[in-house]
C-alpha cells in the first residue's frame, strides 16, 4: 500500500521543461531520500508533491490524511513566539489544554526546551529555529512529511542531531516521508531507500535500497555505503555536480 504516488509528473517554467516523466512511489511509513545535482528540479518536484505547485501534467495520488513540509528555511512567523508558531499547525477547534499538551509534546519530540517556547524567532539560534519548524510539522499530526533540504544551513554536529530527530519520528512504520538532500551521507543515514533524479529532470534515473533500518546503521556502514555509491555506482555520478543548465 503506497502513501504517495507520483505518476508521470512533468513541469515547465516559462516554456522550459524542468521535470518530465517522473514516476515515484512511496510506501506507508517509508522514508525516501531524493538526491540529484542542484538545479535538477528536486525542490520543484517536492512542491508539486506537496500541492504548492500545480504540475503541467501527471497525476498525484495521496492515501495519507495530512501532510506537512519542513522547508530549507525555518519560515517562522517573526511576530509569534515559538509556542504560537508550533501551535499554528494545530486545528482551531482544540481546547486550550489539548493545544498546550500537543505543543509541548511536539516541542519535546524536536528537542526544544520549555523555556525556549516563549521566545520569538529572533531570539532563537539557527538550529532552534529549524527545530521549531520541525516541531510545527510534527504538531500538525501529519502522517506524511516533506523535507526540502532542511539542514543544509546547519553545522555538521547539529545536522546529525536533527537527522536523529527525523529518524526517530519519521519512517519506521510511523509516518511516511520524502526527504530531499544533496548530501549523500545524510540520505544514507536516514532513508530506507535512496532515489536519484535525473540531472536534467528527465525522470527518476534509479533507486537503491539500503540495508538495515535507519537508526540501526553505524557510522562505519554509512561511510562505506557512501564511498561505494560515490566511487563505483554510476547512478550517483552526477549528484555532486554543479547546476549544468545554468552553467551551460
Amino acid at each position: 500500500m503506497s502513501a504517495l504516488t507520483l505518476n508521470d509528473i512533468g513541469h515547465a517554467f516559462l516554456g522550459r521543461t524542468v521535470l518530465d516523466r517522473v514516476t515515484l512511489d512511496i510506501g506507508e511509513g517509508e522514508l525516501v531520500a531524493l538526491v540529484g545535482p542542484s538545479g535538477c528540479g528536486k525542490s520543484t518536484l517536492l512542491h508539486i508533491a506537496a500541492g504548492l505547485v500545480e504540475p503541467r501534467h501527471g497525476r498525484i495520488n495521496r492515501t495519507y490524511v495530512r501532510h506537512a513540509v519542513v522547508f530549507q528555511e525555518p519560515r517562522l512567523l517573526p511576530w509569534a513566539t515559538a509556542r504560537k508558531n508550533i501551535g499554528m499547525a494545530l486545528p482551531e477547534r482544540l481546547s486550550v489544554r489539548d493545544r498546550h499538551d500537543r505543543i509541548l509534546s511536539a516541542a519535546a519530540a524536536a528537542a526544544l526546551e520549555g523555556e525556549d517556547l516563549d521566545k520569538y524567532p529572533v531570539q532563537l539560534s539557527g538550529g532552534m529555529k529549524q527545530r521549531t519548524a520541525i516541531a510545527r510539522a510534527l504538531a500538525s499530526e501529519a502522517d506524511f512529511l516533506f523535507f526540502d533540504e532542511p539542514f543544509t544551513a546547519l553545522d555538521p554536529a547539529l545536522r546529525r542531531h536533527m537527522q536523529d530527530i527525523v529518524i526517530g519520528h519519521v519512517g519506521s512504520g510511523k509516518r511516511g516521508g520524502l526527504f530531499i538532500t544533496h548530501d549523500m551521507a545524510e540520505a544514507v543515514r536516514i532513508a530506507h531507500r535512496v532515489v536519484a533524479l535525473d540531472r536534467r529532470g528527465n525522470g527518476i534515473s534509479g533507486k537503491r535500497h539500503i540495508s538495515l533500518m535507519p537508526g540501526e546503521r553505524d557510522e562505519r556502514m554509512v561511510f562505506e555505503t557512501v564511498q561505494h555509491f560515490m566511487k563505483q555506482d554510476p547512478l550517483f555520478r552526477h549528484v555532486e555536480e554543479l547546476d549544468e543548465r545554468r552553467a551551460g
Binding site: 512542491h47 506537496a50 500541492g51 504548492l52 495530512r66 501532510h67 506537512a68 513540509v69 522547508f71 528555511e73 519560515r75 512567523l77 511576530w79 499554528m88 499547525a89 482551531e92 510545527r136 500538525s140 516533506f146
Partner: peptide
C-alpha cells in the same frame, strides 16, 4: 510569500491565511 506557502502546506484556508499571515505583515 514563503510564509504563505508554508501556511498553505499546513492546509490553512484562504481566509485564515489572510488573517493570520498577510494582515499582520501589512500592519507591521
Amino acid at each position: 510569500r514563503l510564509l504563505d506557502d508554508m501556511a498553505l502546506s499546513l492546509g490553512m484556508g484562504r481566509v485564515r491565511r489572510l488573517v493570520r499571515i498577510t494582515v499582520p505583515q501589512m500592519l507591521n
